[in-house]
Design a protein around this nucleic acid. Structure first.
Lengths: 334, 334
DNA sequence: CTGAAAGCGCTTACAG
DNA sequence: CTGAAAGCGCTTACAG
């Protein structure tokens, strides 16, 4: 079945393609009322749908943006993506979401694919493994915004949590409740990743501020698959920690699996706070105290910033990173 | 900064655009070795990236498919989408995922948008509210595959769970463990939705088969926001149920919130099975017994079927629906 | 107020 | 073995 094109509509309405195009783009300024009506009728009668691909080619804009998340398994990624989608929707922009799976090769593949598809800009949760590619995009004045992690040296702002503050709030909460031996557990990646570094920094600073010792054997950064083992090691220390700060949702899940399996009571035997709110936090037993990120605002800001760059046709921005406030949600795991 | 086009490459390599295009499409059959090398060098030197939009316009194929899930909040949707993505990746097809949010208007909007963007086919988790639109697509021989829910009367197969069997397995498991007063709770929608209907059917049949009474006041289909209230009502019956089958993940979550809040012991005071595996099932206390769907296989089959239709340029298929096996994962909530 | 013509960046028969 | 030309379905100055 042959699709209806603008030519068919023009013939049917007995006007030129140009006039139909004017109509489609709502340039009614000089259009006769009867012409307008004839075109409208023809469109309905033929069931005409404009071909965006053709339009995009001519206009050099697809009204589509790409989002590449570092790892879709983090709840944070999904929530931010959804907020980005909502914000784009207002301006009639569409989204293509890709998952780099913490792999710079995949990230590069997706960047290339999205650019070949001519998306108007990309929001990246950077793996950190493609610095020269990010630089190249910038040289080509291609609109990019970073989320969750920053890329030092690039004049592109990143939308991030106040990570140090988040860790600090958690540690302070532990301290207030009387805990002194406080550990932190994060997942590790081969590349250095802003949130992890800053959260550990905030953790250390806060301990120091409260004159508590900073112990290396309480600071863990291991691959997700090794978390259970690492907990084993840490809890067998002579003076094991009484509290653990989970650096993100996946880490928290591994810790809960461990405590469940070894029948360790929370918070009596070990207190827990997780950064990132998880779906089951409120109805887990015990309900889990978390530090949540304002994912909705962060996604919105990322979208707005990217759309702004797209409109201004600029890639750089002089603004420092945008930092968002963490929120402590007190529940029963501390 | 002006992007590099095939014309630039042709000039730089001192050949025609046609030849460059042949090269790009790996039609090397009659191409001189030196020509090939010159083109390759020019591409690298200029950093040329083909424009897929232009290619798509000419080839009338975007190598992209759309996925419209009824409600992204169901874990099932996310997992199936990911499986579809993996399967498409093999054939170098890309994905645009949209969330209809159980709203037929949004579903229609997304179908129109995806077709305007000329995606080669769409996988739909149908809301059921756009039958005429589905029919129109079929008339236009547009490739479509349904997932999770079927649309009666349309010669388009749907990829579904053996829903009756899933409910039946759950009920049998309850019965084997000695439970007799078994209820079912599902979310309701204004439109009738295959899984819900079939699961209730399977539930009833199994009770009947075991000569247990089928009680209307044990069968609940209410909006998500009313689940808590409904549980209240049901548990205040003179002879309240001893076991509840949760029709999907969101229902299960509402039930767990309720039991937590009212301090109801699982499984001692109420036993629970959820259809759909949830992330926290294994480390919840108690670990939740679930019936899981083979989401990976289902997504794979959906993708394969759609890609097949796209290649054959056909929309109909005579095959009955594809049905997949549920799996009972015994844990501690029964 | 409307239409003819050029052009977006590719691909593809076809000619030589 | 390679190139000239037409065309995919739109939009956009420009002419009248």
């Amino acid at each position: 079945m042959k699709p209806i094109t603008i030519t068919d509509v023009a013939q049917h309405a007995k006007v030129s393609k140009s006039t139909v195009s004017q109509y489609l783009n709502k340039r009614y300024d000089y259009m006769g009322e009867s012409t307008k009506l004839r075109i409208e009728d023809s469109i309905n009668e033929l069931g005409y749908q404009p071909n965006y691909v053709a339009r995009s080619l001519k206009q050099k804009s697809t009204k589509t943006i790409g989002v590449i998340v570092a790892n879709i398994l983090h709840n944070f990624s999904t929530e931010v993506s959804r907020a980005i989608e909502d914000a784009c929707h207002v301006d009639d922009f569409h989204l293509i979401v890709c998952n780099a799976d913490d792999d710079p090769h995949k990230e590069k593949k997706y960047i290339d694919m999205l650019r070949a598809k001519q998306v108007d800009g990309i929001i990246i949760f950077p793996t950190g493994g493609n610095i020269d590619l990010y630089e190249k995009m910038l040289r080509e004045e291609y609109p990019v915004v970073f989320v969750d992690r920053s890329v030092p040296g690039l004049p592109v702002s990143s939308i991030m949590l106040k990570n140090e503050k988040a860790a600090s709030m958690a540690v302070q909460h532990f301290i207030t409740r009387g805990y002194r031996r406080i550990a932190i557990m994060t997942t590790t990646l081969t590349r250095s990743v802003t949130p992890r570094i800053e959260r550990i920094e905030g953790y250390k600073d806060t301990l120091t501020r409260y004159k508590l010792p900073v112990r290396d054997d309480y600071i863990n950064s291991v691959p997700r698959s090794d978390i259970q083992m690492q907990l084993d090691r840490m809890l067998q220390l002579d003076d094991p920690p009484e509290a653990i700060l989970a650096g993100n949702d996946l880490t928290l899940i591994e810790i809960l699996k461990y405590t469940k399996q070894h029948d360790i009571k929370i918070p009596d035997e070990i207190a827990i706070i997780g950064i990132d709110d998880v779906s089951f936090a409120s109805f887990y037993t015990p309900a889990i105290t978390t530090i949540s990120q304002p994912t909705f605002e962060m996604g919105k800001k990322a979208a707005e910033l990217l759309l702004y760059k797209i409109r201004q046709q600029k890639a750089e921005d002089q603004h420092p990173d945008y930092r968002f406030e963490p929120t402590l949600i007190e529940r029963d795991s501390v």
